[in-house]
Simulated assay, not measured.
Amino acid sequence: MKAELIELMARVVQVLQINMRWMTWNLFLAFIPLALSIWLFRFKRGRSWVWWLGFLVFYAFLPNAPYLLTDVIHLIEDIRTIQSVWMITLVLIPVYFLVIMAGFEAYVISLINVGYYLHRIGKSQWIIWMEMTTHALCAIGIYWGRFLRFNSWDFVTQPDALLTRGVEEILGKQPLVIIAITFAILVGLHWLMKRVTLGFVSQKNKSIVIQPTSMNTNSHNAG
């Protein structure tokens, strides 16, 4: 029994070591648009050619954040490898959940930052259209990445192949169905996670405001 447990643990460690390579890389790609969204939309700066270049890079890399949702296919493969309910429940699923949610949260915060920018420049009515358009573009980007194996930098390295093969492939019935389902998932998850995120931020801001007020009241009473 002890030997079997040691062997199982060794297999889990091996699987995690292999997964950490692509998990770390995918998370890095997911946090690129998050960092760019802060630089582009949270600071007041003019829309120079550098800003527009950053904007294009932001949208080129943005699908990498929700793309992590599709990495659940690796979880299925790992479950077949481990074949232990306890290890799957206590190790694999929590690790995958944290990585996938971290990537999607980067997506949510990035769009919140875009919405903040639109609100600041007096274009709040564009926020919902921006979100829907972004979900659609990212659904296409996820399909390109998962099924056609294109990367964000292919916009520069092989734009012809991306625009010709990429456009041709998504016009079929099956790709359109997959893209539509992906779009629906992005809309639903974003709607939920956006409210959770904004609720958390709002609650945190309230606690920051209340705490100094209560401290001032106490010091006044003491005096």
Rank of each mutant, 00 (worst) to 15 (best):
A65T: 02
F28V: 07
W51V: 01
E4K: 09
F58M: 01
L192E: 03
N151Y: 05
K173Q: 12
W25A: 10
L176K: 15
F41Y: 10
L62T: 00
I6T: 10
K2W: 07
R21Q: 13
S84I: 05
I208E: 11
H74F: 09
F150S: 07
G103E: 01
V108W: 04
L176V: 06
S207Q: 10
A184Y: 02
L137H: 09
V85T: 13
L92H: 08
Y116K: 13
T81V: 14
R47Q: 14
E131V: 15
L186G: 01
W86Q: 11
L16S: 04
L148D: 04
W49L: 02
S84F: 01
M132F: 10
H220C: 01
S124K: 13
G188E: 05
H135C: 08
N205S: 09
L53I: 09
I181Y: 06
W39S: 02
G46W: 00
A60Q: 14
A139Q: 12
H190M: 05
S202Y: 14
W129V: 07
A10S: 08
T197L: 14
S110A: 15
L29K: 04
V12Q: 06
V196N: 02
L192F: 08
A65D: 06
L62W: 09
K44D: 14
L98I: 15
S214G: 00
T164A: 06
V156S: 12
R80G: 15
T70E: 09
A102E: 06
L62F: 09
L118R: 08
A60L: 15
I208D: 02
G172F: 01
I100E: 06
S152L: 09
V15L: 09
K194F: 05
T81Q: 12
L27N: 13
N205D: 06
H135R: 03
L36H: 05
S202D: 14
A184H: 01
M130N: 11
A30M: 04
N218D: 11
M23F: 14
T182P: 00
L8M: 14
K204T: 11
V167N: 03
V91N: 02
G199W: 05
N19T: 03
I140C: 07
T197I: 10
L186V: 06
E169M: 09
V95Q: 06
K173E: 08
P94E: 07
F97S: 14
I128K: 14
K194Y: 14
I73Q: 04
Y143S: 04
I127M: 08
M132H: 06
I18V: 08
M193L: 11
S37I: 04
G141C: 03
W153D: 06
